[in-house]
Write a protein that binds this DNA or RNA. Structure first.
Length: 284
DNA sequence: CGCGCCTCCTGTGTGC
DNA sequence: TGCACACAGGAGGCGC
């Protein structure tokens, strides 16, 4: 699933392959892919045609392409979204949702999304920071991310620490996979009440978050050397580096205890029962 | 207002 | 063999 490292890999690919190019035409094959563009698919296409893409930016798991009109093409990959740069003659993907062709006649940009949780929209005047994502917190690799503020806000929460990590208005870019990995590195259980964490404990957790995101980013960088804008987060190279996520009953890399899976928010949490014992005052 | 549950969606895997 | 169902999960929206 695309979390910050995967989305950053895509952003770098867009910067390389579509920045500076002018959009000729836009084809929306599935209306759900542009459902966040409330004015509809034809309005979406009309705002893009003739516009030049100035760059590729990211906040957390959101991507946007600033346009020469001052608008932004905003995108979220959801769980299965891909932005692919393909030769115009390449056959359509099964789940192709949106196609952008360019005036130079070169490779086209395709939004492909099996489960359609992702989508694209044009935000008028949003080139600097699209309006729909102004509530999204800075991500922990953003130079302007405030550690002090994050620590204070986390400790003032009244929830479990994993819920806090997944809250994109507190810290963005972290999803289920990297939350579990960071908690394991910090030896914290997912149900640990946020208000019982000391400042140093939250600081250590933040360092773990940055560590796991950075490691994944390095792995993503190595695989991103093709003509594609690679978004294959689910079967990625970083799988081998995961300590706990998806590893039920396998030995903890630190102590050998079998990894445990717990239901959490209609999904899963993976922990080492020995390194990350469940707190008595568990909160979830 | 803070918190937490529900829902959107479809392909894959599993058990009977 | 085929069917039913659990599961994967980001994030907006809404209820309490």
């Amino acid at each position: 699933m695309p979390e910050l490292p995967e989305v950053e890999t895509v952003r770098a690919g867009l910067e390389r392959w579509v920045s500076g190019r002018t959009i000729a035409s836009v084809e929306v094959m599935h209306p759900r892919a542009v459902r966040r563009h409330l004015a509809g698919a034809s309005d979406f296409a009309g705002l893009l045609a003739g516009r030049t893409i100035l760059g590729a930016r990211r906040r957390g798991k959101y991507l946007w392409l600033p346009l020469d009109s001052g608008d932004a093409l905003l995108g979220h990959l959801g769980m299965s979204g891909q932005l692919l740069v393909q030769p115009v003659e390449a056959p359509d993907e099964t789940h192709l949702r949106v196609r952008l062709r360019f005036t130079d006649g070169g490779r086209e940009l395709r939004f492909v999304d099996q489960r359609t949780f992702g989508g694209l929209a044009v935000d008028p005047g949003g080139a600097e920071l699209p309006h729909p994502i102004q509530h999204i917190a800075r991500d922990p690799v953003d130079p302007l991310f405030s550690d002090t503020e994050f620590i204070a806000r986390t400790r003032s929460r009244r929830t479990g620490i994993k819920r806090a990590l997944l809250d994109q208005s507190l810290i963005s870019g972290v999803g289920n996979i990297y939350a579990d990995e960071a908690l394991w590195r910090s030896k914290l259980h997912w149900a640990r009440p946020t208000e019982t964490l000391t400042r140093p404990a939250v600081a250590l957790l933040l360092a773990s978050v940055r560590g796991v995101l950075g490691d994944a980013l390095l792995a993503g960088g190595t695989s991103f050397d093709s003509l594609y804008v690679n978004v294959n987060g689910e079967s990625g190279y970083f799988d081998r580096s995961l300590a706990v996520y998806g590893r039920r009953d396998e030995p903890c890399p630190r102590c050998g205890t079998p990894i445990r899976r717990d239901p959490f928010m209609n999904r899963s949490s993976y922990t080492c029962p020995r390194c990350q014992p469940r707190p008595r005052n568990a909160r979830w």
